[in-house]
Amino acid sequence: MRLEEHPILKFNRGKQVTIYFDGQPVEAFEGETVAAALHAAGVYHLSDSHEHHRPRGLFCAIGQCSSCMMVVDGRPNVKTCITKVRDGMTVETQKGKGDLGWNAKKS
């Protein structure tokens, strides 16, 4: 859920765009991070840990802890808490370590 009213802050959101979370369209605003947009849409489970496949979500929100890594536009291990949304971006729940061949496949 997004905050519309706040006693101190005013939120000037950017242009509305659409990102795709596991194939489903999600409303987002330019200038916000992938993790923030997913949170606003009620998506909290972002990846599965590689050893015990435990659900992982946002923890630090400043790019330090690696808990929010997802597959973004085909590229695994992207820290979604510091990656800004872009219209049409695809975001997938990351299972395990991710396919490290993404770069080779691209070229």
Partner: peptide, 16 residues
Amino acid sequence: YGAGAVQTLMNVYGVK
């Protein structure tokens, strides 16, 4: 969450 993460969500991005 770390407390700072919650602050970022609500105070920077306006997300509850």
